[in-house]
């Protein structure tokens, strides 16, 4: 959050605004408006950030002490016990590993495959161009639904396998569209000169188009990485009986589910099934939940401010092209 230098679409607009403001800060009404606006924005930031700060404080606070309540912005009895407990659990360590693996592998595969298909449908003379484009775009309007998809994955033998995280999602239509429109915007002369030098389609794609498309590929990579990191439903649906393939988000989901169930049953006692009795004095479900929440969101919180402009570009470009 410290990085406020990250540019966004509004920068040019800011310039216009300063020009038209002309240095005059206007009437009393204007100043009242500005003050209210700034107060509103500060409130918005508090509402957005407070839950994260509070969760961080709880995760760094002594677990038994947290039950007393009254933890707001910083820990009362600072400790790293919650984190050392979480990272000593074999399940959580394994889940962290799988989360990282699916994010890295899934992103590389998706970006490469989407770019390749996007390249083929950007070639104006490719005879299957229209057919492939329509075949992909149609799938935005319908899908087989939960059960048919589940049965398909089962029949393909992908239950309890790592590849169920990668293969069903290798190409997103949205990604395809924004990469295609980027490639179509590249100067045709560059591709033409490669062809004159004797480069085939694959060489042109790998050596010329891929490096030139880095900005849009970065956007797609980021969308994909965030989506992979945040996914839990495919774990729940296909791999819930294989603990080795669990992910951080799914482990956190199970903790949330347990605490929901205990809320309905009004028995807060054994909410966290994984916490064995030896540790019961040191950690509580409440603290574990907070700690896991931080662990599952920190990579994203650290990374997104620096990559914001790519996301914003993807939103504004992808939003109008079809």
């Amino acid at each position: 959050m410290a990085n406020i230098m990250t540019s966004n679409t509004a920068s040019t607009e800011g310039k216009k605004r300063r020009l038209r403001g002309g240095g005059r800060y206007g009437s009393l009404g204007d100043r009242v408006f500005d003050t209210c606006n700034i107060i509103f924005m500060l409130l918005l930031m508090v509402v957005t950030l407070y839950p994260f700060v509070n969760t961080l404080a709880v995760s760094l606070n002594n677990a038994t002490d947290s039950i007393r309540g009254g933890i707001y912005l910083w820990p009362r009895e600072f400790t790293l016990q919650n984190y050392s407990y979480v990272f000593n659990e074999a399940t959580i360590l394994g889940a962290t590993f799988i989360s990282i693996m699916r994010t890295v592998i899934g992103t590389i595969v998706t970006v490469f495959c989407s770019a390749m298909v996007a390249y083929t449908i950007s070639r104006p003379d490719f005879v299957l161009r229209k057919f492939i484009t329509i075949a992909f775009i149609l799938t935005m309007y319908f899908n087989g639904g939960l059960i048919p998809n589940f049965l398909l994955i089962r029949d393909l033998g992908m239950i309890n396998s790592f590849w169920v995280y990668i293969i069903p999602g290798i190409i997103g239509v949205f990604n395809l569209i924004i990469i295609r429109s980027f490639i179509e915007g590249l100067p045709e002369s560059i591709l033409e000169s490669a062809r004159i030098d004797g480069a085939g389609d694959f060489t042109t794609f790998a050596k010329i188009v891929l490096p030139l498309s880095l900005p849009v590929l970065a956007t797609v990579a980021l969308f994909t990485a965030v989506w992979q990191w945040n996914s839990w439903f495919d774990v729940f649906l296909y791999n819930s009986s294989e603990i080795k393939l669990s992910t951080l988000q799914y482990e956190l989901q199970k903790i949330l589910q347990n605490s929901n169930a205990s809320m309905s049953a009004k028995s807060a006692g054994d909410a966290f099934a994984n916490a064995d009795n030896a540790n019961a004095n040191m950690v509580t479900p409440f603290s574990i939940r907070a700690t896991m929440t931080i662990v599952a969101s920190v990579p994203i919180i650290l990374v997104y401010p620096f990559l914001q402009k790519y996301f914003v570009k993807g939103m504004t470009v992808g939003g109008v092209k079809g």
Partner: peptide, 8 residues
């Protein structure tokens, strides 16, 4: 820009 970054 700060508000925008936080709000995302």
């Amino acid at each position: 820009r700060l508000v925008q970054t936080v709000s995302y």
